[in-house]
């Protein structure tokens, strides 16, 4: 186990929330050691996809294998063991707000290892150094800016040296400088420690600039897949609209609705 080319293999994934179908037969392969981006407009269930990979949600049909193991067939203790090997960077950072930056980064180390406190201290400072924030270890999460919180969360995600990190919309709401810092960090971490990175994002330019492989999903299916250059130059109408940010195309400007006249005359019934 654990020697296949692909770290994550998703086959025939179906998932729906209530009546709304989120995934309708999705196949994705994420190769080891690279940066794979999964792109699509908001509401296509990109975060849901990461939660499915992490085993927090169950698919209606289809399988997800991570490092050779079927995530949804594992017992909960096996699943927890697998999660130790996965890091996830949440959109908001998801730092625990009642403990300091240092304790946040130390949290997984204290939970899953029996290292002495002096060793934990060194590791935490090293991880914080890797994201360039060693200076803030004493602060509380609410004293940090959004970008800094995300970098601290990244330090926490790599604390246990996972084999894979999933980034949930890492670039949203960042100013150009912290965006640049994050891009740099993701690339550097990936190359330096042989990680596998998965990025879900709708920030086309930034994501395409670092991704080795790009999947574009829409309407519950994979529309296209390929290197970032191929995708940027794609002739697929849908991909073109998304990558170039055109207002109208296969995704109409107007959402499905009854004719305007009917709505206006109907008095909002």
């Amino acid at each position: 186990m654990g020697t296949e080319k692909n770290l994550v293999t998703i086959k025939g994934l179906h998932y729906s929330r209530g009546d709304k179908v989120i995934f309708d037969g999705v196949d994705i392969e994420i190769p080891r050691g690279g940066i794979t981006a999964i792109m699509g407009p908001s509401g296509t269930g990109k975060t849901t996809l990461l939660k499915l990979i992490g085993g927090q949600l169950r698919p209606a049909a289809g399988t997800i294998h991570v490092d050779g193991e079927d995530v949804h067939r594992l017992s909960s203790s096996e699943l927890y063991k697998l999660r130790i090997k996965m890091g996830m960077l949440f959109q908001t950072g998801a730092l625990l707000t009642d403990i300091s930056v240092f304790d946040n980064v130390a949290y997984p180390l204290r939970e899953h290892t029996n290292l002495p406190e002096s060793m934990i201290r060194k590791l935490v400072l090293l991880k914080l150094e890797a994201v360039g924030l060693r200076g803030v270890w004493k602060q509380m999460p609410n004293q940090l800016s959004g970008g800094m919180a995300r970098r601290v969360a990244l330090a926490r995600a790599i604390a246990l040296d996972p084999m894979m990190i999933m980034y949930d919309e890492p670039f949203t709401g960042q100013d150009p400088i912290s965006m640049g810092v994050l891009i740099e960090l993701i690339r550097a971490l990936n190359d330096a420690s042989g990680l596998t990175s998965v990025i879900v994002s709708h920030d086309v330019e930034e994501t395409a600039s670092i991704a080795d492989l790009v999947y574009v999903i829409a309407n519950g299916r994979v529309v296209e897949c390929g290197g970032s250059k191929e995708i940027l130059g794609s002739s697929n109408a849908w991909t073109r609209q998304f990558m170039r940010g055109l207002a109208d195309g296969p995704v109409p400007f107007h959402q499905d609705a009854p004719p305007l006249v009917e709505d206006l005359l109907g008095g909002g019934q």
Binding site: R83, Q91, T92, A94, T97, E111
Partner: peptide, 14 residues
């Protein structure tokens, strides 16, 4: 709401 619970789960902490 701030995904701290999800975050713990993904850190393999119940």
């Amino acid at each position: 709401a701030t995904e701290q619970l999800s975050g713990l789960e993904m850190m393999a902490v119940d």
